[in-house]
Write a protein that binds this DNA or RNA. Sequence first.
DNA 1: ATGAAAGCGCTAACAT
DNA 2: ATGTTAGCGCTTTCAT
Lengths: 337, 337
Amino acid sequence: MGYFMTSRSQNRPNIRAVAMQAGVSTATVSRAINTPERLDPETLKRVLHVVQELGYVPNLTGRSLVMGRTHAVGVVVPNVGWPLFASFARGIEMELNASTLMPIIVSTDDLQDREKDAARALVERSVDGLILISSNLAPGEIERLAPNMFRVHINPQIDGHEHQIRVDDVAGGYLAADHLIKSGHKRIAHVAGEFRSGRDRAQGFLKRLSEEGLEPFVLYTGDFTVEAGEKSVDKILEIGVPDAIFAASDLMAAGVCRALNRAGLRVPDAVSVMGYDDNPIAALLDPPLTTIRQLDIELGKMAGKMFLSLMEGEEAHSEIIVPELIERQTTRSRLRR
Amino acid sequence: MGYFMTSRSQNRPNIRAVAMQAGVSTATVSRAINTPERLDPETLKRVLHVVQELGYVPNLTGRSLVMGRTHAVGVVVPNVGWPLFASFARGIEMELNASTLMPIIVSTDDLQDREKDAARALVERSVDGLILISSNLAPGEIERLAPNMFRVHINPQIDGHEHQIRVDDVAGGYLAADHLIKSGHKRIAHVAGEFRSGRDRAQGFLKRLSEEGLEPFVLYTGDFTVEAGEKSVDKILEIGVPDAIFAASDLMAAGVCRALNRAGLRVPDAVSVMGYDDNPIAALLDPPLTTIRQLDIELGKMAGKMFLSLMEGEEAHSEIIVPELIERQTTRSRLRR
DNA sequence: ATGAAAGCGCTAACAT
DNA sequence: ATGTTAGCGCTTTCAT
């Protein structure tokens, strides 16, 4: 690493400069900033005038050191670049905006080592706490890395964390199957996804089917991508043409639709299709995709809210988010009138 | 705001705890961390052992105070939740990962006041510098808010900033028109966008047309949304059916495609369509959208790189990014063989 | 090679 | 109502 200039930002006026200029002690300046009501109006006015004049901006680093708080909270996500996590981060930011807390977002690429590095870097910065989504770290591990820190976990891959928010993927899968069944579909294929979320969605799907005494038409497992959705259609059509296909992600559903179109099967006339996520693309597909909404921004807001309540001394608790159905135009009732 | 617990994170071992336990001075511990080569191997080993034992993690707040650097850089974007800015932020993060710098991302909702607040909050945190994209602040304003700070500006709405990166929207519009003209389209409509970027794209588009002696079929201005794209088609079809429609955003292009389909006009057989951005949805539309790519991640990386070089003392300079054509399946040659 | 001491910018007893 | 002073965790001269 090269040589870093550091001289430029050095000349910011500090509390002492203000104090001297105003002819008061630094304590008085501090009070003018933090507890103005405890100051003589005259002095206050004089101090604030100097603050203005010098363009004094308090240095939070100094304050943090004595207060033992940075008013920063680390947000650990797999990748801020991805829409889901971007929205999630934005939700946290919105919620925290009302407080004095500022989120610091770090991406891990879903790598355990990078996650450890991230946690460590945030601890070094003495953040007041951590919000982690889709973490791969075991509770003991994270406690070792960030001891005694306020933490909120969203959908950790490894169980046993307190202060959890879980998105109920089982309920989401169940909801999708329920919608298809209620609108008269019988032969329903599922393009499942990986990881816990994929498995949970499949589980909920199967549960609803079994309540009806139905078997899945086909179960195919993909990796959440468009290509996986396209490939799944090949497999499915080898068996026959189902009434409906439920894919565990909107991307896979997009692939499913595209492949069905190519095979000359119109959506939803020939086959109904459902996705999962309510990815921004869902509404833009033609026809717009019926899907299960994961309210990412809301999830972020909820996480922010839970973090705030933790700092205020609230007991550990968990919450569960139940996804909702967004009915658009890729599903269509098969009930005869 | 309620009462915040603060006792939890207080008991982190500090440099003095390590020093005492190892029977050395704090200076030695500091050296063990920062300049291990200047220590007696025996002492070093002993100190590091205690560091391990106690789980000592240096407190960057203290270090920042004495060093006058936080190794943090503020990133000011309109909204981290939007794909473009999320990718941009991710690009910065990737570039900065190799250094000791950590980005702190703040959203402003494109509001001047929020932007001032953001700048101020980041200055309070004593960030080493600022990266701003689509800023609405005048150079003097931002200099007043963040005096003597390293700054990189990307596409500011107000000109006159140093260390700029500009995305050449004129070239992008030119490129789109060029592609359509070279593939034999004559009657070309443009659905323009707002702001400087929208105007620039339109300008480039018109420039290429005029080189050919062509007039635009229609010029309609929308607000970058899907709905604007749909509405534009109504207006365009009032005049007639063009050979091609070039929309200033992929979202508008998606709306254009949808409306054309509804009107019974197949894309690209009846009408070619082009978008702009290479939004993730572009590849997923059916048919996949031909568009102009704004390499958002690359833009972020470039911004990070420029910031790093600034800190290393490099002179102020500007860069321009020229977008590239991504040819997919919504355009089709009208040249007879 | 290591330690003692000063100081980065700030706040909070404590004193007046 | 305001000032004095100590100290938050760390690095860095200056001694030794």
